[in-house]
Amino acid sequence: MKPPPLRIHRPTSIDQTLDLLSEHSVSGKVLAGGQSLVPVLNMRLAAPSDLIDITGVSGLDELTVSGPEGQQEIAVGATVTHRQVERSVDIARANPLLAEALRFVAHPAVRNRGTTVGSLAHADPNGEMPMILALTGGSVDVRSRRGIRTLSAEELNVGPLETCLESDELITRAIFPALPAGSRAGFDELARRSGDYGLAGVGMIVDVEDETVTGLRCGFISVTDIPEVLDLGEVVSGTQIDEVAGVVSRVVDAVRDFIDPGGDIHATADYRRHLAGVIASRLFRRLCRTDNARIQGAQVHTAGNDAGNGTDTGADAGSGTGKGIENDTGRRRA
């Protein structure tokens, strides 16, 4: 588990980086957090001749929320870690979906090094952030010696683990639009263990005006090849939020019809399809609860129960009152 011989370059400016990428476009690879790339190198599944380490490049650490009220944008530079995004109060206020999904990305140790833009470039269909970019209608800014271009999520993602990026190109930053006023957003997934890739995961944005649902968009992880967005506005529009129970089954059917999961050693395709429907159903109900008017992810989780405990079953294991059956001291006693 040692990588084959390679050269590491440590540029300090974007210009130098683009020069290096241009020079080593045949067998160069950008290294940021390294949380996916380094294991691949050590297992000799990839053997780039040159690694271009961008962690010292100035101008890639942007993490801002800007723009006029109602049209704000979140900009995340290429060297910004998942953890920085997750812990930003401003971002949570502008769009709580990012932090809510990020808590399911591996564990804090990985999020401390892994970068959000790196996840977008890796384009893993199991990854939370490519889906969040698509669901929120975000984009990425891409630079090379040949110029600058902006790509929507739809343009960026062309297949599992495959983007339209050319080998001399660098994503310098990602833009996530803020959540529009009146919209509610949530994310949930079920993984085998805390921090594992979800067996299925659903991100959801519900638009509500005057207690009436006016729009519904869903994105998925682990059950679609690329992060496509399913727009179910037609199915739910006009439904009072306290009457969504009547349309949930249509939402679930549409979800199960839309996705195309595969089976592996952790779960069958049939189970994943079933699971995605259950998660979508629970998420939709949760987001439409009348007491959920301003988005529940608005509080920023900075400590404590960070692991991401899979699906909210509505049944908190530690909180029962069963006459001495449930040990209410729980883990705290350990």
Binding site: S194, H266, A307, N309, T329, R331
Partner: peptide, 11 residues
């Protein structure tokens, strides 16, 4: 290969 994390092991 999934071994339980601390989060999967009960008190």
């Amino acid at each position: 290969f999934l071994m339980p994390f601390a989060s999967e092991v009960p008190h």
